[in-house]
């Protein structure tokens, strides 16, 4: 683990496995989404089981669930 980095557990709804992602400490969820190539307009995020805004900052060991909301054609 790099200095100043933190590990968070990320699960995207619909995908079977969760993965661990390294982010800079105190990174905003919005930046994590960018890192994952996701647009904030298309997802709702749960942090440790609770719906939060993408402006919340991440801490070591946090669990992030990403629910894609755009489903139609």
């Amino acid at each position: 683990m790099e200095l100043g980095k933190t590990l968070v557990r990320v699960r995207i709804t619909g995908q079977k496995v969760a993965r661990k992602v390294g982010v800079v400490k105190k990174t905003k969820i919005a930046d994590l989404l960018k890192q994952l190539g996701l647009n904030r307009e298309t997802v709702v995020v749960k942090l440790n089981g609770k719906i939060v805004t993408e402006d919340e900052r991440l801490s070591d060991g946090d669990s992030v669930e990403i629910l894609p909301i755009v489903t139609g054609g």
Partner: peptide, 15 residues
């Protein structure tokens, strides 16, 4: 989600 309404979140295969 906040109201706990049960919805289908599948993606249309033709999208």
């Amino acid at each position: 989600l906040l109201k706990g309404i049960k919805v289908h979140l599948g993606v249309c295969p033709y999208a």
